[in-house]
Amino acid sequence: MDYIKSDRNFKLIVLGGSAGSFSVVSKILSQLKPDFKIPLVLSLHRLKHVRSGLVESLSYKSAIEIIEPCDKDKINNNFAYLAPSNYHLFVEFDGTLSLSTEESNNHSRPSIDYTLSSAAYAYRDKTLGILLTGANRDGAQGLKDIADHNGYTIVQDPKTCDIDTMPLAALRLFTPNQILTPDQIVQFLNSLPQ
């Protein structure tokens, strides 16, 4: 397999995942270069019964600091922002994050669609969207919104997914720029100009 790289300049990376995504996200975060600058926004579904502890578990190996943001927190370089349990997380035009307790979307709060779409509108072609394994179609439309706004899109290779419903839902809607394995996603991210 070719070495995957890109020289596009991104201002924001948004990443969505559901069932099975914990280990993939954990792998990506742990293998990022320690000086990885571009901020990451993570919208991950959680099991209702295990609402707390996700940020701690991901932080354990992560190369960069992970924060569960408060409403209207500014997005800074060198950080990853994890949607807090039971809130939707939105990216705003002024480079801040906002939260909402609106109704669930696709039975999910946080809704990956909401996070990804808001990033598409706010950061347009400076957005990199990544959709990982999951058992639900939340996220597919949001990733398409990023593509429609000239952002760059990556879907996890369904063959490498614990549950491929989410990536397949995205692939039915549109054709992303890349379909990559978790290892290739890491390569891609670490090749980006910082």
Binding site: C70, K72, L99
Partner: peptide, 8 residues
């Protein structure tokens, strides 16, 4: 306040 609301 809510758990992710902060005063600034």
């Amino acid at each position: 306040l809510g758990t992710h609301e902060a005063i600034t």
